[in-house]
Simulated scan of single mutants.
Amino acid sequence: MRSEPLVRMPPSLAPGATIALVSPASWSEPAQIEETAAIIESWGFRPLLGAHVHDRLGYLAGSDEDRLADLNDAIRDPTVRAIVCLRGGCGSFRLLRGIDGDGLELDPKPLVGYSDITALHRVWHQHGVPSLHGAVAGAHQRVVRDALAGGIPAAVTSDIRQFGAELTTRGRASGPLFGGNLEMLARSVGVLDFDLRGHVLLLEINRSAGLGHVDRALTQLTMAGALDGVVGVALGWLSGFEDYEDRGWTVIDVLRDRLGELGVPVLAGLPFGHDPNPLVAPLGVSCAIDADTGLATFSAAVK
């Protein structure tokens, strides 16, 4: 039996709704903060900047205490209807045990972000609140707006030209979608409980080191039992690995070896992850992947 709580669907955003902008990880340039706020305004929503979004402490957007305070303030503020993370980078992991999960359950609201923000998505998932793996940036930013307003994200087709698309297998799978950045998922083992039985696993991988870190991360998740019962894999961008080889192997070989042990359908070549124009994937709600037709479909993340 799955230990995940029942889904607590946030309400869709009405025109004029408030969206909090927070920096739980690395800092953003002022121009990026202003641009994100302007985009949200153009959607007909009201951006609310966290008190510490302009702070800097090394590569972090201020102290752990202040970044956590901004996030919890957004969770606890009844006027805030969604939370947008200004960027990933590094630092979200430090906040995990201080997040007001009870407050999130009492007033569920979607979180938007990807990369390092995967750590926060896991908290939302543990408390049964859907979230959006994506960014308020790029050519598909309106998809985020539509998802927050109650729209069902359009079906996504695998791109056979995308690096890694040849990892697609055969078969179909459906279940709640959860995942994100591979490195962050593996780092969360032992810190947050994992039970992904019955889930479709979303993976996007960016190269921060060699093939070994991909192998170690997938092996850690497997040996920890975090992937027990996963019914399928939706594989996004493999950023930075396109021309990388290590002793005759590429990341394709590593993934074919590691994911093959799961014995489930894999749909690769999906437009999720580290790219200037990422699409949004709703986490915590129903997803279906069809490796035979190359199609992934999703449910709405708000009601």
Score class of each variant (00 low, 15 high):
Arg2Pro: 13
Glu4Ile: 13
Arg8Leu: 02
Met9Pro: 04
Ser12His: 11
Ser12Cys: 10
Gly16His: 12
Thr18Glu: 01
Ile19Met: 08
Ala20Gly: 02
Leu21Ala: 01
Glu29Gln: 05
Glu29Val: 07
Glu29Ala: 14
Ile33His: 06
Ala38Ser: 14
Ile40Phe: 07
Phe45Ala: 08
Arg46Ile: 12
Ala51Asp: 14
His54Phe: 05
Gly58Pro: 14
Gly58Val: 02
Tyr59Ser: 11
Tyr59Val: 13
Leu60Tyr: 12
Asp64Glu: 14
Glu65Ala: 13
Leu68Asp: 07
Leu71Lys: 15
Ala74Tyr: 01
Ile75Arg: 02
Asp77Phe: 00
Asp77Pro: 02
Thr79Arg: 08
Arg81Pro: 00
Arg81Val: 00
Ala82Trp: 09
Cys85Met: 06
Cys85Asp: 02
Gly88Cys: 08
Phe93Gly: 03
Leu96Arg: 05
Asp102Glu: 10
Leu104Asp: 10
Asp107Glu: 11
Pro110Glu: 12
Asp116Pro: 08
Thr118Gly: 03
His121Met: 15
His133Asn: 15
Gly134Met: 06
Gly134Phe: 15
Val136Lys: 04
Ala137His: 09
Ala139Val: 14
Ala139Thr: 09
Gln141Asn: 03
Leu148Ala: 09
Ala149Cys: 11
Gly150Glu: 09
Pro153Ala: 12
Pro153Val: 06
Thr157Glu: 03
Thr157Asn: 03
Ser158Met: 08
Ser158Leu: 05
Ser158Arg: 07
Ile160Tyr: 12
Arg161Trp: 01
Gly164Cys: 05
Thr168Glu: 07
Thr168Gly: 07
Thr168Val: 12
Thr169Ser: 15
Arg172His: 10
Ala173Val: 12
Ser174Pro: 11
Gly179Leu: 15
Gly179Glu: 13
Ala186Gln: 06
Asp193Arg: 15
Leu201Phe: 15
Leu203Phe: 12
Glu204Trp: 04
Glu204Leu: 09
Ile205Cys: 13
Asn206Pro: 09
Arg207Pro: 14
Ser208Val: 05
Ala209Gly: 15
Ala209Ile: 03
His213Tyr: 02
His213Met: 05
Val214His: 02
Asp215Cys: 02
Asp215His: 07
Thr219Cys: 03
Asp228Phe: 00
Val231Tyr: 02
Gly232Ser: 01
Leu235Gly: 05
Trp237Ala: 00
Trp237His: 13
Glu242Trp: 08
Glu242Thr: 11
Glu242Cys: 05
Tyr244Ala: 03
Glu245Arg: 15
Gly248Cys: 05
Gly248Lys: 07
Gly248Phe: 10
Trp249Ser: 05
Trp249Asp: 07
Ile252Asn: 10
Asp257Ile: 01
Leu259Cys: 15
Leu259Glu: 10
Glu261Pro: 10
Glu261Arg: 13
Leu262Tyr: 06
Val264His: 14
Pro265Cys: 02
Pro265Glu: 04
Pro265Asp: 12
Leu267Asp: 04
Gly269Asp: 03
Leu270Gln: 05
Leu270Pro: 06
Phe272Lys: 01
Asp275Val: 15
Pro276Phe: 00
Leu279Phe: 01
Ser286Val: 09
Asp290Cys: 13
Asp292Ala: 06
Thr293Tyr: 13
Ala296Leu: 11
Phe298Tyr: 14
Ser299Asn: 12
Ser299Pro: 09
Ala300Leu: 06
Ala301Asn: 11
Val302Leu: 14
